[in-house]
Design a protein around this nucleic acid. Structure first.
Lengths: 201, 201
DNA sequence: TTGTTTATTGGACGCGGTCTAATAACGATT
DNA sequence: AATCGTTATTAGACCGCGTCCAATAAACAA
């Protein structure tokens, strides 16, 4: 994952960051849809196949910032003690993850959605990440509650809380310069959801 | 949209239903991922281009049932009177839409997700529908609340409620034979979310 | 020098999706 | 019956994403 520590074998010629920056330039010039993988690779000075060596798909380059911060959700959840109520643990973990996101890094995916009507693979990559977070959160809630809550509620918690957080991220991204920190938006969005579930769990 | 009433021009040789049934057979035989558009068209007795004449994309064939029922959400929302509280209107509208769904029709999209790890375009089509419902619901909440609720809450309502409903649909789909009606799952999932927002709006 | 490991590269392929132009099948008009 | 307008189907070409494989290049180690 890191760019350092390659003691053996041929050294890397490029990096995720390099490719992301090359892609970012092209996205600004001609939008995401009109930018081909060949162009990104060419501007980064590597071949097309090398691009796929760093990213599994073209759209993955839109989510590097997002992926880096949201990877920590599982850790934050695991770090919560069993004495704190489930929904409080959920809310605090998500807000902490949001707070750890650098204020100036807006994932490209969120800006390009507004720019043009959300292309296919962009949506694919978005839902993949959405579902992944739901998996993480849903299994946590299921562990904490056991079978007592039935099959629906844990899933409902996961989908609605992550959904509210996604909505907050969207508003945050489109708020432009002068926006408040991401964690503020997220906290406002998920607090009612968590409160609602806390009342029935 | 309907298959009838083509008084002028060349009559249609196929229909969405025909193509969907041809696709369903192939999906059962070899899963969604391993089925090509050419195969679907061939089994339905038409050319590949004709398929795209009925569906905008391969994955759209997975959602015909879903699309048909969920198209009514906007109407249900519009039919609600201004005297009923916002979140009550939202909850009732969604439950009514869910109740109108025939119990035996499980959208292919929901079954194929379990079957194999959710292919790209399947996810793309899923998020497209998710976002569309969020648009419908979000603009309704915005109309009802005006600017008083800020920018985040209406979006948060839309995303979390639709998210909860999607979770319910997923549980419903994977519950197999003997499951309760879809509306039961949906009502259980979205009630806490609606209650949570009702407390702060 | 030789071997090992890893990264890069080129080339080919399949598939989804778009586009255009040609054609086929209908009703209506003359 | 011949013609016209309308709509559906079709063939064909094209682009771009993503995958696969074999060849090569660049490092280190023995």
């Amino acid at each position: 994952m890191n760019d350092i520590a390659h003691h053996i074998g041929r050294p890397r010629r490029s990096s995720k960051r390099t490719l992301e920056e090359a892609a970012a330039e092209l996205f600004l010039e001609q939008t995401y849809a009109r930018t081909t993988v060949d162009q990104i690779a060419a501007r980064a000075g590597v071949s097309r196949n090398t691009f796929f060596n760093y990213f599994a798909s073209k759209s993955d380059v839109l989510w590097v910032d997002f992926d880096e911060t949201v990877e920590r959700l599982a850790d934050e959840l695991a770090a919560s003690g069993a004495e704190v109520a489930v929904m409080d643990a959920v809310r605090d973990a998500i807000v902490r993850v949001a707070a750890s996101h650098p204020d100036d890094r807006v994932p490209w995916a969120l800006t390009q959605v507004d720019l043009m009507g959300t292309r296919d693979d962009l949506e694919a990559s978005g839902l993949r990440r959405f579902m992944k977070q739901c998996d993480v959160l849903g299994s946590f809630v299921l562990r904490r509650l056991g079978d007592s809550a039935g099959a629906v509620l844990p899933q409902a918690v996961a989908f609605s809380v992550i959904g509210a957080a996604a909505a907050a991220a969207g508003v945050w991204a489109s708020a432009g310069i002068g926006r408040r920190p991401l964690a503020d938006y997220v906290a406002e969005a998920i607090a009612p959801v968590c409160a609602g579930f806390a009342a029935v769990l």
